[in-house]
Design a protein around this nucleic acid. Sequence first.
DNA 1: GTCTATATGTTGATAGAC
DNA 2: GTCTATCAACATATAGAC
Lengths: 212, 212
Amino acid sequence: MAPTLPANRAASAGDTGRMSDIPARPAHYDLDSLLAVAVGVFNERGYDGTSMEDLARASGITKSSFYHHIEGKEQLLRLALERALAGLFAVTAETGAGSGRAIDRLEYVLRREVAVLADELPYVALLLRIRGNTGTEQWALEQRRTFDRFVSGLVAEAAADGDLRSDVDPALVARLIFGMINSMVEWLRPDRHRAGEIADAVVRIGLDGLRP
Amino acid sequence: MAPTLPANRAASAGDTGRMSDIPARPAHYDLDSLLAVAVGVFNERGYDGTSMEDLARASGITKSSFYHHIEGKEQLLRLALERALAGLFAVTAETGAGSGRAIDRLEYVLRREVAVLADELPYVALLLRIRGNTGTEQWALEQRRTFDRFVSGLVAEAAADGDLRSDVDPALVARLIFGMINSMVEWLRPDRHRAGEIADAVVRIGLDGLRP
DNA sequence: GTCTATATGTTGATAGAC
DNA sequence: GTCTATCAACATATAGAC
């Protein structure tokens, strides 16, 4: 599912024999592989701080060749944000609206969101950093707010059930706990951390300490 | 994109005495007031997404006039980041190195950091969003890492004292709890939320749930 | 599909009149 | 201290050869 990341150099004239450490330049490029490269650079330098020249260089081809495969810079952003949002909304779809106690559905959502964040890390990281400068970004921010309302409602429901301590505002709890989860994008390295372990820690910090 | 219109141009040449009319535009500009405006726009659009034209328009003067007061765009970023970091490091200085139990010093740092974040909100928000594109940003990121090591050490110390449950990695706890605090910059409105109340919630979520 | 060359707009920053 | 006018560099994106 996840396209592999080429990440090699242009090597205009003499690409000498370092082919063993550095993955060889792919035989051909498609939108998905270039998207993966672009999202990586977007996360390093920020979307606005990334030029098409940066993306071309990171892909190992020229700007012109890069444009052969894509419509423009904003298309890359849109595809990345759509992918991140698809992951988040898959969680809300799984959870449904009213089966089981809210506190249990909340724990499920917490764990699943940690998993989505780990699985789609660069895409979600990008989503969490946009500021609304373009129409695409404004649309994505509105989608994020919809997701935030969903989880916030879940926390409120669990509080109404008496399954969360009553001396903290549920809306505040929702913001802090999901802020805690979202902050993972700043340091998570999927090759060095296990999502399940982090989800356990999140539940222990966020829920075990809040249960009455 | 954004509608442009200064709308409050003062009389230029013959204006000798009357400076009481228009409140929107200050009688004079200095670096601090322009910095406040700039940081506000930086946080709306991102540093790289903000042009000097944006800053001039938000200040009600032209780009040229704006440049009369500042050295350049990066100076504004540097001043803002210095102010944010001064706030953070004031907390580490207050806390000292070894008076009292680590868990108590940790709680103190949590509460003080929430307060600093609320007091210097736009400056800290900017600090938490930089990506390291310029020398100034790289310096600030290194300072942030120093601060992170300080709080991470405090958590590890409290864990070693047996004052935190032992089934969660202290380094992970530090990242999650301070990620929770840092996420405040995404939604905090100092006129609508009270920092003390938020600090209470952070301690309840983060510590009361972790104490053995 | 890739390249070189270029069109066209925006950027940070400056010159110089008033 | 403010303005208009402008620069050189860099931005996104395209043309057209191979």
